[in-house]
């Protein structure tokens, strides 16, 4: 296990370098000089442009620009925000926990809901339950998540007034008791978490169904049936375990979409997380913030994938031997 871990860790280095190269390339999207200097965008003041040139050494040769930038990125120094002058990394650190919390909760929700759906529809492919879930999965693939968020907001928040529709805390948060405070935050999280989870639900339940159908056809399952072991035990003990393995990877692969989705949902529900921070920075053309968010977001995804791979190796001993 240890040597596998080490190998995976060494594998990260070229990927991390690649992330910095692509992020750096984004600054120089337009050939020659960066787009914002060429366009003289009226949204950026002359002062900010000078700051930019200094920050990214834009008056030096390209190679030197990258090296200097890389050196600072390795120290997690992304410069200061144009908007309030505070350090980029400090602002991201403030906002990150909320985003991580929402993403982890929605991942749990995806698993809890999609797993039974996938398993039950795999038991009788083409049956009534399977037909209905297939229909909903198709709808789920085509449904714009932000529109669903708006509809739920309109129905549950505005018309029925059951759930709060913006922020993380109510106005009277500080007067609430300990349990009241927790309940308040949970109420605020219900809509964002369920909408974030919705995007992954359709795909994940499809994968569970597909894997389950594949595993149930295997010889060892037929052998188990032949031995007269009861069906529940076969399905939930023998088949499910093997069907679940590849899903760890799928869950890891869904991380970029989930984190990316936080831009949309945190903006809709006015949640003070990293997605909303990045969105506001994009609107305000706060370039140091944007670049910091991009690099940190990619590194987080990379770490998430690493975690998924390690879980996989832990769950499936065959991987470690390779």
């Amino acid at each position: 296990m240890f040597s596998y871990f080490l190998k995976r860790l060494l594998n990260l280095i070229p990927l991390l370098l690649g992330i910095t190269i692509i992020s750096f390339a984004v600054i120089h999207l337009a050939p020659g000089r960066p787009a914002y200097l060429k366009e003289m965008d009226p949204r950026i003041s002359l002062e900010a442009q000078e700051q930019l040139i200094k920050l990214y050494d834009l008056d030096k040769p390209l190679f030197k620009q990258y090296l200097n930038w890389l050196k600072r990125v390795l120290r997690l120094d992304f410069g200061n925000s144009f908007v309030d002058g505070r350090k980029v990394i400090v602002r991201i650190r403030e906002r990150l926990p909320v985003t991580l919390l929402i993403n982890i909760l929605s991942m749990v929700l995806i698993i809890v809901v999609a797993l039974p759906i996938g398993v039950i529809s795999a038991l009788k492919p083409g049956g009534l339950f399977d037909k209905w879930t297939t229909f909903f999965v198709f709808l789920g693939f085509s449904l714009p998540g932000f529109w669903l968020a708006l509809l739920l907001m309109l129905l549950l928040g505005i018309k029925l007034n059951w759930l709060p529709i913006s922020g993380l805390k109510s106005f009277d948060y500080h007067q609430l008791s300990f349990w009241g405070k927790n309940l308040d935050i949970i109420k605020h999280l219900i809509l964002p978490v369920s909408v974030t989870a919705f995007g992954g639900l359709a795909g994940f339940s499809r994968y569970v169904r597909g894997n389950m159908i594949g595993v149930l056809k295997q010889n060892y399952i037929r052998a188990a049936y032949a031995q007269g072991i009861n069906k529940g035990r076969i399905v939930y003990k023998y088949a499910l375990k093997n069907a679940l393995l590849p899903l760890i990877t799928i869950l890891g692969l869904s991380i970029p979409g989930l984190i990316g989705g936080s831009v949309i949902f945190e903006s809709i529900f006015a949640i003070p997380g990293m997605g909303r921070l990045l969105y506001n920075s994009a609107v305000a053309r706060d370039y140091p913030m944007i670049m910091g968010g991009l690099v940190i977001g990619a590194v987080l995804t990379l770490l998430g994938n690493l975690l998924a791979d390690l879980c996989y190796a832990w769950a499936d001993p065959r991987i470690k031997c390779k």
């Binding site: 070229p14 990927l15 690649g18 992330i19 692509i22 984004v26 600054i27 999207l29 337009a30 960066p34 787009a35 914002y36 366009e39 965008d41 692969l253 991380i255 970029p256 979409g257 984190i259 990316g260 989705g261 936080s262 831009v263 949309i264 997605g275 990045l278 969105y279 920075s281 994009a282 053309r285 370039y287 944007i290 670049m291 968010g293 991009l294 977001g297 990619a298 590194v299 987080l300 995804t301 990379l302 994938n305």
Partner: peptide, 24 residues
């Protein structure tokens, strides 16, 4: 394929709005 792996690391919407912010 490494390049593909790296591109897949970027949270989709982070990359999109960054590029939008830099381009018109």
């Amino acid at each position: 394929m490494r390049f593909v792996d790296i591109m897949l690391c970027f949270p989709t919407f982070f990359l999109l709005i960054t590029m939008v912010a830099f381009l018109k």
